[in-house]
Amino acid sequence: MKTDFKRNGKIWQRYLPVLFLFALMLSFTSCYTDYGLTAADYDVVVTQYDKNTDFGAFKTFTMIDSVFHITGDTTESDSDLLTRKYDKLILSTIRENMIKYGYTEIKNPTDQNKPDVVITVQALGTQVDQYYSGGWYPWYGWYPWWGGYPGYYPGYYPPYMGKSTYYVGTLFIDYFDVAASLSNPDNAYVIPWYATINGLLESGQSETRLTGTIDQAFEQSPYLKVK
């Protein structure tokens, strides 16, 4: 190796590869970039509509004035994972969007005064348990779950197993075609539009996230507008 050194002459050339390798390693701390997501980034709004429905023909609507909790148990009307705190906000935001799109609300429908559309809202809470098998090193991404002290030699510990639990809420907004449902020979309800909103529960900014995602559901469904 001595001969090499003499031949090369310059010391920096000996260190260049090492520096190069080091720079490379620094740039690849993870194969999946963490974009620093906020709770709102985990919100998803899905809407679906039936292309054969003439939404422009609907003019009036009635809302069922409470949010149904899907509990999996018919005797339970309230889900353990969901709060009733935001029910009013959810319903009023949907109502505002319907009115903004040109619909007229019928508060007390009768047989003589039927709405064109009935809106129902259902909510589901889900608990998700996620298990991590940590590596030998308290890597950047693992650090919050790692049990040991940062000062200890990390390789000394056996791989760490961790569990994290999060709660997911799903809101279902269904838009029933009343006339089609009543005349349907199959006796089944006809839902030409629905929205499903999914996001993390109790992660902050619940009010703005709820109103924002409900607004988004209508915004991405411009065909709902009354002509």
Binding site: V44, V45, V46
Partner: peptide, 16 residues
């Protein structure tokens, strides 16, 4: 077919 679906959400896409 008869259904039109729209999805809004933050997507993270990766290829390794």
């Amino acid at each position: 077919g008869d259904k039109g679906t729209t999805v809004k959400g933050t997507q993270l896409r990766y290829v390794n």
